[in-house]
Computed example of a mutant assay.
Amino acid sequence: MSALLDVSGLHAGYGGTPVLFGVDLAVPEGGILALLGRNGMGKTTTVRAIMGLVRPEAGEVRFAGASIKGAPTHAIARAGIGLVPEGRQIFPTLTVEENLIATAAPARAGLPPWTLERVWRLFPRLAERRRHFGNRLSGGEQQMLAIGRALMTNPRLMILDEATEGLAPLVRAEIWAVMRTLRGEGLSLLLIDKHVDILATLADRVVVLEKGRTVFSGTAAALMADPDVRGKYLAV
């Protein structure tokens, strides 16, 4: 698979304090990359640097062959990257339907367009609660809404930071099933989550970060076959 998102030698930090030290990763076109690591190892900072929320200090970020390093966040989103942020960050005083409409963008060539009706089919529970305000939803429903909101931007790549954090097992299973559906429809995904065993069944490739550095990059099968890497960098 060719890379839709290609990050190389990425350095970034906050207020002069470095966090990332040459991170490398590539999300395959139409595939899934899992970005793993313990808490505080730089995963969210990597996402923020990709999305222009943190300015990269060095390295390169290329999307669909073009550099997006240092571009403003709205331009990166318009280029075709949708973000489901950690903590969901839905609009609490808008209804479910208003949350979805607020981010709607035109369809992209080569991918079926995302509409309200299509989101309702993907998440029937949201259709039932379309008139409810965001702050009246359960945690699982809020995560579904955050995913639906990102899909309404009609992205080529969707990034999910802590995709199932704090969710009940049944809701987690529903989110994983949706990820498989989206991948089957040609959407590229970058997933961050703590459930390594599940991610290994979803992802084409895996990158592991340790203190802001890439310490493993390979297939999910290679990671699961390497207990030393899992024990050293992922075990809690």
Rank of each mutant, 00 (worst) to 15 (best):
A3C: 03
L151A: 11
V196Q: 11
Y233C: 12
A235H: 14
T73Q: 13
G30V: 06
L151W: 06
I175S: 03
G80P: 02
G22T: 08
T103A: 15
G42P: 06
E29T: 14
S2D: 13
A107M: 11
T17W: 00
A64W: 01
G184K: 09
A49D: 06
R55A: 12
A168V: 01
A150D: 08
L10P: 01
L167I: 05
N99Y: 12
A177N: 13
H195A: 03
T73P: 04
A77S: 14
E174Q: 15
G218R: 13
G231L: 06
P169Y: 07
L151Q: 09
L20I: 07
V96I: 07
F63P: 03
L160N: 11
G40C: 08
V96Q: 11
P28Q: 13
V196D: 07
R38G: 14
G166P: 06
K211Q: 15
L100P: 02
G52P: 12
A221E: 13
A146G: 03
W120Q: 05
T214Q: 11
G16W: 14
L126T: 05
L137M: 02
H11N: 08
G9K: 01
T219M: 09
R230G: 07
S217L: 10
L160W: 11
P112Q: 09
I68T: 05
A66Y: 04
V236R: 10
N135A: 06
E57F: 01
L182T: 07
P92G: 04
R172S: 15
S8M: 00
M1W: 10
A222S: 15
G16H: 08
T219D: 04
R55I: 06
K211T: 14
A71K: 15
V119I: 13
E128H: 07
M158V: 14
E185R: 10
T153W: 08
I198E: 15
G148V: 09
M144A: 02
I81Q: 10
L191A: 12
A77Y: 00
I198F: 00
N154M: 10
E128P: 06
A221C: 02
